[in-house]
Design a protein around this nucleic acid. Sequence first.
DNA 1: GTCCATATATCAAATTCCGTGTTATTTTGT
DNA 2: ACAAAATAACACGGAATTTGATATATGGAC
Lengths: 265, 265
Amino acid sequence: MTLSPSERRREIVNLVMARKTVALDDLAAHLGVSRMTVHRDLDLLEERGLLRKERGGATAESSLLFESNFHYRMQNDLAEKHALARAARALVEPGSVIMIDDSTTTLLLAEELEAIEFVTVITNSLAVCEKLRAHSNVKLVLSGGSYNQNLQAFYGLICEQSIAKLRADWAFLSASSIIGLSLYHQDQEVVRMKRALMAAAERRALLVTHSKFHTRALNHFGELSEFDRIFIDDGLDADSAAKLRQAGIAFELVHGQNTTRTETK
Amino acid sequence: MTLSPSERRREIVNLVMARKTVALDDLAAHLGVSRMTVHRDLDLLEERGLLRKERGGATAESSLLFESNFHYRMQNDLAEKHALARAARALVEPGSVIMIDDSTTTLLLAEELEAIEFVTVITNSLAVCEKLRAHSNVKLVLSGGSYNQNLQAFYGLICEQSIAKLRADWAFLSASSIIGLSLYHQDQEVVRMKRALMAAAERRALLVTHSKFHTRALNHFGELSEFDRIFIDDGLDADSAAKLRQAGIAFELVHGQNTTRTETK
DNA sequence: GTCCATATATCAAATTCCGTGTTATTTTGT
DNA sequence: ACAAAATAACACGGAATTTGATATATGGAC
């Protein structure tokens, strides 16, 4: 089986992530392509901030070990994220004002908005901005701030102050990690931005894949109880689900298994 | 002679602009392509906000009649704008903080920044943002605000307040129109943004093509005397030049004639 | 400094993607 | 209901990208 260029690069990233460092010749042999091609792939991945290229091979960039890179995260659990986005779309009423955070999950919600008559979207995510810029049914408001290439979004004082000056009907957020009833994220400036979004919205919706229940991240940014609606894909293990129910947290299990193409007709 | 796709679309725009409305069949006949191709061109131009597609043809969007559309302006005097950008680049010192406005002229300055060691760029232009996002030598700060699809940039309260909170060494601006010693722009919210940029920068540089001396726009946004450096391409007529000199305005004539490819080796 | 391994540059072949026109089907306005 | 127009689907040809072979340059170990 021969991989497509993007699949091949993904495979390289996986190997680099698992082994932390990997030889160029090993990659060429494992992927069945020439050294030259591997060189070019590594150059590209270095551009994206996923790894550091060095003589004879490559090592993982620290950002990759935290799995915080946008391009990398975008690939994970895609089908589940799509399903969550489709489910959350029902909350968006024509004419309403919504906030969308910098996560790859809520980015997919942006794609769903084409179907809505008219919406105002406030975001700090450049990726969301690019998805919506051509849609004439969407009034787009960007927070601004300092650009973070790794997360494809804007942060800092400018970002937080802009958000603080706005009001929305709903804020749609995701989290990196859920431990107990608390939400975590690895990055402080992201935490500040998320707090600003949560404070500026009338109601809050959380979209998380079940994988978020099995990772850890450094900084606390909120509690499940702060959210009005919570969407989780149905890959959630029974144990975690039971604990949530026991704590009185209402959530919706969304069907979105790893069927690569499950377009609902 | 057969036109390239972009030339063909430009021709459509010119026709729509001149006639205000034009039939699809006329376009197909005049351009020597199939109806299907014209359909696809019109879809694309409608996406860009240049015209409105309607049964049997297309009509000009008002933004086009005011020549305020980004994609349209981007095509005009390209060689001259490139030359202005190259000249202005010399002002940017490594490590400095600069502001770039939403004009198509200063957008080309952004392209030139790759050569600079390290710069912080503050802008309200999404186009500038996209040019620079991948450059690791540029720290990018976006003002945020409400997105204007027609101008590919952000405006409004958020934008102005963000800019007011920042300081820069240089602001690089352009103008739609120069009448006497005054600068004009057709759009009020753009004027506000430009004033904010000018106020937030230590020094100001103006980049204008000679064609700006022969058009008119509604709103006053500044005086030539407010700028520390002024760059004009050498297509400027002797009469206008004399008047500037007489008024004691120092400016630099930049060579950049319509030689389609004058790459300086 | 030399030497060998690795990296970059260049080019031609292979492949993929994009633009186009044809035909078939659906939609729209009268 | 009808005709004109718009859209959808498909296939062809050419442009652009990707790839690996080769040649050249660079870097580190000694």
